[in-house]
Amino acid sequence: MPSSQDATDLSLHWFNRLAYLGVLPFVLGLWMQWSGVSFGYVDGRFLFAAYSCAILSFLCGVWWGGALNAAHHPAHNKLMYLSNGLCLLGWVGLLLYRTPVGLLLLLLCYVFVERMEAYLKPNRRELRSYFRTRTRVTYLVVACHLAMVLLLIAGG
C-alpha cells in the first residue's frame, strides 16, 4: 500500500508537469502574434491576454479559498481583499489587451502574486518543491509578458 509520502510525491510530480505545461498557451499566443496567425477572430494578443487573465483569476481563487479555509490566519482579511482586487486588475488588463499597458498590468499582477506568496508561504519542507516550481513558472510567465510587450512595441 502506498504511503502518504508516495502520494505527496506523485501529486507534486503532476503539479510540476502541469505548471510547466501551463506556459505553453503563452508561447502559442506569442507565436501567433509574431507570425500573424489567427484562429477566426482570435489573434495571438487576445489569446495571450485572455489566458493570462484566466490563470491570474485561478491564482486569486486559490488565495480566496485559502482565506476561507484559514480564518485564524493573521492575513485572512488581506488575502480576501487582495484576491478580489488582483482579479479585477487582471480583468482591466484584459480589457486593455490591445495596448502594452494592459499586458504590463497583467505582468505586474503576476509579480505581486509571486512576491506575496514568497512572503506568506508556510515554512514547511514538503511545500518547498511546490513554491520553487511556482516561482520558476512565474518567471517564465513574466518573461513571456515582456516578450509580448516588446513584440507589440516593435509593431508585431
Rank of each mutant, 00 (worst) to 15 (best):
L79N: 11
L79Q: 12
M80C: 01
Y81G: 04
Y81A: 06
L82F: 09
L82Y: 09
N84I: 12
G85F: 05
L88G: 10
L89D: 02
G90Q: 08
W91R: 01
W91V: 02
W91A: 03
W91F: 01
V92Q: 06
G93C: 06
G93S: 00
L94I: 04
L95R: 10
L95K: 07
L96W: 09
Y97F: 12
Y97D: 13
Y97I: 04
R98N: 01
T99N: 11
T99M: 12
T99R: 14
P100H: 03
G102V: 02
L103S: 10
L103I: 15
L103H: 05
L103M: 00
L104S: 08
L105A: 12
L105S: 10
L105W: 09
L106E: 15
L107F: 05
C109A: 13
Y110G: 05
V111D: 11
V111T: 10
F112Y: 15
F112W: 15
V113E: 07
E114P: 04
E114R: 11
R115V: 01
R115M: 06
E117K: 10
A118E: 15
L120N: 06
K121G: 02
K121Q: 12
K121I: 01
P122N: 12
N123W: 04
R125Q: 15
R125L: 07
E126K: 14
L127H: 11
R128Y: 08
S129M: 05
Y130P: 03
